[in-house]
Design a protein around this nucleic acid. Sequence first.
DNA 1: AAAATATTGCTATGGTCAATAGCTTTTACG
DNA 2: CGTAAAAGCTATTGACCATAGCAATATTTT
Lengths: 146, 146
Amino acid sequence: MVEDTRALPSPAETLELLPGYLLRRAATAMMSELSARLAPLDLRISDATLLLLVSDRHDLTSSEIGKVLDIQRANMVPLLNRLEAAGLVRREPIDRKSQAIVLTEAGQDHLAKVKSITASFEDDLLARIPAQHRAHLVPALRALIG
Amino acid sequence: MVEDTRALPSPAETLELLPGYLLRRAATAMMSELSARLAPLDLRISDATLLLLVSDRHDLTSSEIGKVLDIQRANMVPLLNRLEAAGLVRREPIDRKSQAIVLTEAGQDHLAKVKSITASFEDDLLARIPAQHRAHLVPALRALIG
DNA sequence: AAAATATTGCTATGGTCAATAGCTTTTACG
DNA sequence: CGTAAAAGCTATTGACCATAGCAATATTTT
């Protein structure tokens, strides 16, 4: 009996070999864990990503951020409103049409915490991957994004 | 005016090395492509996954399917209602509490098409990954889910 | 310079997906 | 028995993404 490590007749076997399916499952599992780790900061994943992206730049507009993060203009609005309401971000006029998104001091403070949380999170993620596969994940994912 | 040949100083570089971020991006890109390929069948990804899982089994309950697919009981309901309304799935009483989810004939037909779509989709996915990384993706993802 | 076009930021709305709480009925177990 | 667990459901909420459209401004073309 001992060598039957796989207890189940595994109705899921069909699925567990499909990279697409695995990708989805891995992404949702990863995101729910990251959400939990960010919860103490009261930040969502998109919030934290935006903080990381903006960092100490003073020249990024909402549209540009949206392009990089693949978030549509319309959906940037509530995101920025929330961050602005939380005092983490400021809208600074560039000209009369555009405005730069800039971190406030509180935003910089949060950013530091975000950095430490994400760094250890990424470490933990990679640590779960058997060593011989570890280095291949990032290049493979990048190829998938194209 | 400004000969800004390299359009971006790559504000995204920070992010593109984070496995967590890449995982999310790769998953959403993959899902939107798969959705498009399933659209002709009028199936969503979860629908197709369920068809693949049930296949020709006659003993899977809604709860069991949910456990395998990581979908909560409550969220199985609208999914099954939709599939039942589309005539792809039937609820067959097991006892007075449980019911088996079974594919109808139309469901079997759809399943065959789903199989062919997903097979070529997975092939295409893998083809995008440089050969030396290809074999590592599935084990790495499984480790992340595990 | 004037006119056409593109971009920016926004409103409003709807759809998908998942999470939670709670309910009823039925089965399992000490 | 009687209590606990499980099954299926309702209802609601929230996060996230997509579309359409608008007003103001900037850019490009003529």
